[in-house]
């Protein structure tokens, strides 16, 4: 029983604290679209926008679906590319 319940608690998305196991559970339920995984699990929604987790998740998807990595569609990268303070964007002087 212990064996079956053994979880892979390795963090796959550091920004949002998502484990490999959580990603695999969704993939097993049939969510094999990176866009859907992002929206349901928040992977890649944090400040780094998936710079770390996307390649890892794409590998998981490729393994689960038997599709080559290059055929897995990626999600859209949104502006701004690095987090910026609202105060700075507003034109204030807070450039800390």
């Amino acid at each position: 029983m212990c064996e079956a319940n053994q979880k892979d608690l390795t963090i796959i998305c550091r920004c949002e604290d998502i484990t490999v196991d959580e990603v695999r559970a969704y993939i097993e339920q049939g969510v094999t679209d990176l866009e859907q995984l992002k929206r349901l699990l928040r992977v890649g929604m944090g400040p780094c926008q998936g710079r770390t987790c996307t390649p890892l998740i794409v590998n998981e998807l490729a393994r689960a679906t038997g599709r080559p990595v290059r055929e897995i569609p990626l999600t859209v990268f949104r502006q701004p590319t690095t987090p910026v303070k609202l105060g700075v964007l507003a034109g204030g002087t807070d450039h800390e």
């Binding site: 929604m45 944090g46 400040p47 926008q49 949104r78 502006q79 701004p80 987090p83 910026v84 303070k85 609202l86 105060g87 964007l89 507003a90 204030g92 807070d94």
Partner: peptide, 16 residues
């Protein structure tokens, strides 16, 4: 936003 809710000036925008 920073006019109506001034302390939000310290928050970082992650995505638009």
């Amino acid at each position: 936003a920073t006019f109506i809710l001034p302390p939000l000036a310290n928050l970082r925008v992650v995505r638009q």
